[in-house]
Structure formats: structure tokens, C-alpha cells
């Protein structure tokens, strides 16, 4: 399902003395089946943009096309439930949304709201729990007896069980242990590659953006600063640092390597594996 944002503007608490602009003139395209990363300094409006993707917030100006629905400022939209089923959002710190007596019931909450029968929902819960790498016996536990990382996984499973077409992730791995982070990130890419799921990821990790994304959107002070492929974006490191972002470690390594070498490599490498292969190619030339 394609999502297109056109000149979207949003202000919090509009019409009160607490009014504050959050995003202005945001336009970009999330093509079906792609992995789009949104990066930007804290407070740049990333989470605000995400909440527009399933109409939790409505634009005050501009419009959003979500599949066959168009959400425009000042217009009533009826099929919100349909949109919310198809666009699943995992919020920042999603563990705060858990409320049921058992993990299983909590994961079933989403699917059952969207009309999935109880038995079906339970099967989905089992499947989702496996996907996020938890043992099956957590299903019968209370979500409040779990560790922070386990709660996070349960919350993610709760959204996966809705079987959305578009999965929107707001810093899903912040605060997880490094190997757990990698497992979860790989699981998302797996779903994207095999099931054709569209992924939208907000992250502060340039490494993750470089490794997983097909397309990167940089937000800066509530507007879109740049859009491009990871190679385009990370080639131009000055533009990156000018909006307060880091350069991925691999790219930094490559740059100092190129300085020593005296000439640039063939391409900007996005992962350590890619860089190793590229450097490997040089061995023949040098000796």
C-alpha cells in the first residue's frame, strides 16, 4: 500500500495559547513494499509525521494519500478503522500500552478489535510471540511480570498480530540489548522481504538506517531536509552533520581509509561486510 504525504502541516494544541508548530510542508512518498527510514535530530517532528500515517493526527494543511483513501485537512474520513488495520504503528516505548491479564490476551486485543475471531487471534498471538523471539510460555504470563525488553517484544508482537500491510516503527529497539536489537531488526527486514510488508522506521541509529533502508528521509526542524537512497545520503556527510546527525561508523572508517589510500573507493559502503568486500578487492591491485 502506497502512502503519499503532500505539504502536510501540523501544530499541537492549535487554537490555544499552548499552540506550537510541529511539522510544516512535509511531502514524501512511501512506496509499497519498501523500507523507508526517517532520521532527524530529537524534536525534528519524526513521531508527529508517523502519527499521520494512520490518522491519529489529521493534517491542518495538505493531504495524505493512504492506499485508496485521501485524508485532507478539514474533511471527515469514515474508514479510519480500515486504515488503522492496514497501517500498524509501534510507538516509542510501546510497553506502556500493555494492560491485559495475560500476554496472550494483550496481543489478541488488536486483531480482535479489527474483527478477527478469538481462535484465529490466539493463533496469531502464538505466531507473533515466536517472531519476536519470546518463548511460548510467556503467553500465559502477566505482561507486568516481564522484564522491560520482554515487554517491548510483547508490545511489538501485539502490532504484528494485526497483520498490517504497512508497519510503522518509532525507535523500536531503543534500550534493548545489542544482540536483541539485531534480532528484532532482522525480523522486520525478513517480513519486508518475504511478505512484501512496507516498513517505516524512525531511528537514531545511522547504522540501522544505512543497513536496512531503501530510502531515507531526513527531518530537520519540522521540515524535510533531504530524501534519497542511503548511498546518496551518506555520501554527503557535511549535509548530515549540518543537521546534527552522525555519520555511520562504516562510512567514517571508509573516509579515513580513503584518505590514507589517496583515492576514493568505488562506492559508499553501508555495512561492515560491504566495506570488507570492497577493501578485499584492492588486495589484488596493491600486491
Amino acid at each position: 500500500m502506497d502512502i503519499k504525504l503532500r505539504e502536510v502541516e501540523y501544530r499541537y494544541a492549535a487554537g490555544t495559547p499552548f499552540e506550537r508548530p510541529a511539522i510544516t510542508d512535509v511531502s514524501f512518498h512511501i512506496p509499497s513494499g519498501q523500507y523507508v527510514a526517517i532520521i532527524g535530530h530529537t524534536g525534528s517532528g519524526k513521531s508527529t509525521v508517523l502519527q499521520h500515517l494512520n490518522v491519529l493526527l489529521k493534517p491542518l494543511k495538505g493531504e495524505i494519500e493512504i492506499g485508496s483513501h485521501t485524508i485532507a485537512a478539514g474533511r471527515k474520513e469514515k474508514n479510519l478503522k480500515e486504515i488503522r488495520r492496514r497501517v500498524g504503528i509501534v510507538f516509542q516505548f510501546p510497553e506502556h500500552q500493555l494492560f491485559e491479564e495475560t500476554v496472550e490476551k494483550d496481543i489478541c486485543f488488536g486483531p480482535m478489535n479489527f474483527g478477527v475471531a478469538e481462535n484465529d487471534a490466539k493463533n496469531r498471538a502464538l505466531e507473533a510471540v515466536r517472531l519476536v523471539g519470546l518463548p511460548e510460555d510467556v503467553l500465559k504470563k502477566s505482561p507486568f511480570d516481564l522484564s522491560g525488553g520482554q515487554m517491548r517484544r510483547v508490545a511489538i508482537a501485539g502490532v504484528l498480530a494485526m497483520k498490517p500491510d504497512v508497519l510503522v516503527l518509532d525507535e523500536p529497539t531503543a534500550g534493548l540489548d545489542p544482540s536483541g536489537r539485531q534480532d528484532i531488526m532482522n525480523m522486520f527486514t525478513g517480513l519486508q522481504k518475504t511478505n512484501g510488508l512496507t516498513c517505516v522506521l524512525v531511528t537514531h541509529s545511522m547504522e540501522d538506517a544505512a543497513r536496512y533502508a531503501d530510502k531515507i528521509v531526513i527531518m530537520y526542524k519540522g521540515s524535510v531536509h533531504r530524501i534519497g537512497t542511503p548511498r546518496d545520503i551518506f555520501r554527503d556527510t557535511d549535509s548530515l552533520t549540518s543537521v546534527g546527525l552522525n555519520v555511520p561508523e562504516t562510512v567514517r572508517f571508509q573516509q579515513s581509509f580513503e584518505k590514507r589510500l589517496g583515492r576514493p573507493l568505488d562506492k559508499v559502503c553501508l555495512t561492515p561486510e560491504e566495506l570488507a568486500a570492497e577493501i578485499g578487492k584492492l588486495r589484488g591491485e596493491i600486491s
Binding site: Q51, N54, L56, K81, R84, R85, G88, I89, F91, P94, H96, Q97, F99, F109, G110, N113, F114, G158, V159, M162
Partner: peptide, 26 residues
């Protein structure tokens, strides 16, 4: 939290009174 539950299909603003009361639990 309201937004997070809405994203999971919760509906706080329509339906019968008893449904709305139930909707508040999450």
C-alpha cells in the same frame, strides 16, 4: 496511551455506553 490503543483498533468515541466503559479499561 489513547493513541497507542487507537492504533490497535480501540474506539473511545462511539458505540453503546457499556462498550465505551469497556473501552476505557485499556
Amino acid at each position: 496511551i489513547m493513541k497507542a490503543q487507537r492504533a490497535r483498533g480501540a474506539d473511545f468515541s462511539s458505540g453503546s455506553i457499556s462498550n465505551r466503559v469497556k473501552a476505557i479499561i485499556p
